[in-house]
């Protein structure tokens, strides 16, 4: 399966592990939150990177005490109309200060991709039947942004008032 980062296809280094599967040695594995809860101590002891996947009714606050050990949080979009994970990404970044990878999995549509990057999601796993190039195209559709989030895109408001970073540093 392909993973997209900034619209560019990447090899997927992570293995999503079924709850009854044994973690392969040395592999980067993503476990469900239920498994993380059940095997927390042993999983923390593993030598390789661990990711945890959250269903759309599982708030990332459940992982608040474990984020130091979690290199990837996978947020599920069971239906593209279920938008809870847009807020979960912001909770992870802004409230919990998480700096690891956030990945969107499930029914992730191209028309949502730019929103996902804006709220702090790094990578997505697009559904197999979708044209991968479309996701890169979606990132070029807008050059103006109204909402300040935690990405690098400057808002119309800051640009209007010369508060953007480039202007600010040029003036300094």
């Amino acid at each position: 399966m392909v993973v997209l980062k900034n619209g560019v296809p990447q090899p997927n280094e992570w293995v999503r592990l079924a709850d009854d599967a044994t973690p392969p040695d040395g592999a980067k594995v993503i476990v469900t939150f239920e498994r993380w809860q059940a095997e927390r101590e042993s999983l923390r002891q593993r030598n390789s990177a661990i990711g945890v996947s959250l269903k759309s009714d599982q708030s990332p606050l459940l992982l608040a005490d474990d984020l130091d050990r979690v290199s990837l949080v996978a947020l599920e979009f069971p239906k593209f109309t279920d938008g809870r994970s847009f807020s979960y990404a912001r909770v992870l970044r802004d409230r919990l200060g998480y700096r690891g990878e956030i990945r969107a999995v499930g029914q992730v549509l191209r028309d949502q991709y730019l929103f996902m990057l804006r709220v702090g999601i790094d990578t997505i796993e697009p559904p197999a039947e979708k044209r991968v190039e479309g996701y890169a195209e979606a990132l070029t559709e807008f050059s103006v942004f109204y909402q300040p989030t935690n990405d690098h895109r400057e808002t119309a408001l800051r640009l209007r008032h010369g508060l953007n970073k480039s202007t600010a540093s040029a003036a300094a």
Binding site: G83, F86, R118, Y146
Partner: peptide, 13 residues
């Protein structure tokens, strides 16, 4: 209007 327009977090309420 500007704040709510294509809000990345609140477009799938």
């Amino acid at each position: 209007r500007q704040w709510s327009t294509l809000h990345p977090e609140f477009s799938y309420l």
